[in-house]
């Protein structure tokens, strides 16, 4: 391999670059050349890197080309998703069509067609929408109160030793009890069925929100609190304007978990002691041997839960525009 022509070749390329890089590249070449009979080390081959860096920028794409490129990128994913869901529905279809009974029994399970037909009827049913609305109202109330109390207590417990000592033991004792275990007690505690269901929903989401808020307060950078104090913030201002926003990412993690548990608790409570609500609808369908409605209830519960989590994520992005995740949201 001839080294001298290579050095000549690198010069015009390097000349376009800023000077330090050029001298570096040249001196590395020179050193390699200065050693007679010495094999060129790959590390000294700086001239090969320069043409790549000088490559012209990609020409602007036409809109059509851009859509085509996007399709090429997205299509395999879309196809795989469709295939995956198609497989699931096909399995459901054949299992119910041939009424498989191999320990797991599909004898009474509604087919996809049954479900679709019943859904077409329910779309016109005011009672069904009322059930959905009642469940949503319970979630909004229970989860809303849990957010208010969980964040408030979390801030106090996280920030003040006295609050921690006084309140945390109570919560630690109550926390291991699942919200559903409270159902009989709740019915006795509260004047109406409605309030006891909201209470169960509240209990389910309260603890994740509380614990994540405490964790968020504990992980606030101490220098931010000191900066706040130096700038004249009093205790309340510090709590509201420094500690709360600093803990917000953790609080939202708690809200996401809390929303999931709120739905779990709500549906169970509705099935046990409810009147109205989508959980009650699902359980009632079983009692009334309207098996297709069971599947519809389940699907609607899943979609409502998904919508609620999406709402929290949206709210989080709106309230925390400084987070880097927000900037990448469009791509994610």
């Amino acid at each position: 391999m001839h080294t001298a022509p290579k050095l000549d070749f690198s010069a015009p390329d390097g000349a376009v670059l800023e000077t330090p890089r050029l001298t570096l590249a040249l001196s590395a070449e020179a050193k390699a050349d200065a050693t007679p009979g010495h094999q060129r080390r790959p590390t000294s081959d700086a001239s090969q890197a320069t043409p790549a860096q000088l490559a012209p920028a990609m020409p602007a794409l036409l809109p059509v080309q851009r859509i085509a490129a996007w399709l090429r990128g997205a299509l395999p994913g879309v196809l795989m998703t469709a295939l995956s869901l198609g497989l699931f529905i096909a399995f459901w279809y054949f299992a119910t069509k041939y009424r498989w009974d191999i320990y797991i029994r599909f004898t009474n399970i509604p087919s996809p067609g049954d479900v679709l037909a019943n859904a077409a009827n329910l779309v016109h049913s005011d009672k069904f929408y009322h059930n959905m609305w009642v469940s949503l109202r319970r979630i909004l109330l229970g989860f809303g109160i849990a957010t208010g109390l969980g964040v408030t207590f979390g801030l106090l417990i996280g920030q003040y030793r006295f609050a921690r000592g006084l309140l945390l033991p109570i919560f630690e004792v109550l926390r291991p009890i699942p919200a559903i275990a409270w159902v009989p007690m709740a019915i006795m505690l509260w004047p109406s069925n409605e309030t006891s269901i909201v209470f169960i929903t509240f209990l389910g989401s309260f603890f994740p929100i509380l614990l994540n808020t405490i964790h968020g307060v504990n992980s606030v950078d101490a220098v931010l609190v000191r900066a706040g104090r130096c700038l004249g913030a009093n205790e309340l201002a510090l709590l509201r304007q420094v500690i709360l926003p600093a803990a917000l990412p953790h609080i939202f993690a708690g809200l996401t978990i809390g929303m999931g548990v709120a739905w779990v608790s709500l549906i169970a409570a509705e099935m046990i002691s409810g009147q109205f609500g989508i959980g009650y609808f699902t359980w009632e369908a079983y009692s009334l041997i309207q098996y297709a409605d069971i599947a519809i209830g389940m699907i609607v519960i899943g979609m409502l839960g998904l919508a609620c989590s999406g709402g929290i994520r949206l709210l989080g992005n709106l309230l925390m525009p400084w987070l880097p995740a927000h900037a990448n949201r469009g791509r994610a």
Binding site: D221, V223, R226, A227, C230, L231, V242, L248
Partner: peptide
């Protein structure tokens, strides 16, 4: 005896509030 706005402080670590 306690911090206050009569003494401005600049810290070694960056101490800007990231949410503002």
């Amino acid at each position: 005896d306690k911090p206050g706005a009569d003494r401005g402080m600049v810290f070694q670590q960056y101490s800007l509030f990231p949410w503002l």
